[in-house]
């Protein structure tokens, strides 16, 4: 059984249905990417797993437990971290306070986890006392990832980690994601930069209009003529 299993999921916001019978799975330590055109519902998958979209049908199972309609705080306790796309740092809190918030559900700040985050993103330690809002886009993205790593989750959901970053930072960001995965955390990532994402991931899903269209190993999706032409721009 996979770590995360999404089965015949219908979801959306309020009365608006976006996802229509989506199936997905992420294994232990696996790196999975979701790609597809704008408005396909990629982010909605993550938001539904995290309990902030409206669940309309189907099941979501994590580590053998049903989590279909759990509130975010409960989902985090199960061992899932989430890095939303925009506005993903607390701008008036310091870098350190941002990281502390990531471990809110614990009684004390986990010093070992904080050390690991600082080792992974040295710039965050340098800027420890600086307000989150004063960081550059790339640094904010690292801070958001660091915050999600504070509880040492088994799975991290990353919503477009490369969005809005300068080209040289995009490369760095993908490398950081690779490292997080190499250290044993499963990744489910939504990416606009489909080629790069599929090149790096273990498996990929192509989502179109709220439905699964293709899935398979990243490289094979990348090599598929049809997918290249329809979704990856040639």
């Amino acid at each position: 059984m996979s770590l995360l299993e999404i089965d015949d999921l219908d979801a959306g916001y309020g009365d608006l249905q976006i996802l229509d019978g989506v199936d997905m799975a992420v294994d232990d330590e696996e790196y999975v990417a979701i790609v597809g055109p704008n408005g396909a519902g990629k982010s909605t998958v993550m938001r539904t797993v995290f309990g902030i979209a409206t669940h309309m049908g189907g099941t979501i199972t994590f580590d053998g437990e049903k989590i279909s309609t759990l509130a975010p705080e409960r989902v985090i306790r199960k061992g899932i971290g989430y890095v939303p796309q925009d506005d993903n740092v607390f701008s008036s809190l310091s870098v350190r306070e941002n990281l502390e918030m990531g471990a809110y559900i614990l009684d004390d700040v986990p010093e070992a986890a904080l050390r690991e985050v600082y080792d992974r993103f040295p710039i965050l330690e340098e800027r420890e006392g600086q307000k989150g809002g004063t960081l550059s886009g790339g640094q904010q993205q690292m801070l958001a990832m660091g915050r999600a790593l504070m509880l040492d989750p088994d799975l991290i959901l990353l919503d477009e980690p490369s969005a809005g970053l300068a080209p040289d930072l995009v490369e760095e960001m993908f490398e950081k994601v690779d490292q997080i995965n190499d250290d044993g955390t499963a990744i489910l990532m939504v990416e606009q930069n489909a080629k790069e994402a599929l090149r790096r991931c273990d498996r990929g899903y192509v989502l179109v209009q709220g439905q699964n269209r293709y899935d398979g190993p990243g490289e094979s999706l990348l090599d598929d003529e049809q997918i290249r032409r329809d979704f990856l721009g040639g």
Binding site: I52, P72, E73, P84, D87, S91, L93, M101, Y104, L151
Partner: peptide, 21 residues
């Protein structure tokens, strides 16, 4: 911790929610 969470919520309530506050 409570006070920092209050500031976090003042900053961005949605983010506070998905951070587990």
């Amino acid at each position: 911790k409570l006070g920092k969470a209050m500031r976090a919520m003042a900053d961005n309530e949605d983010l506070a929610l998905v951070t587990g506050i």
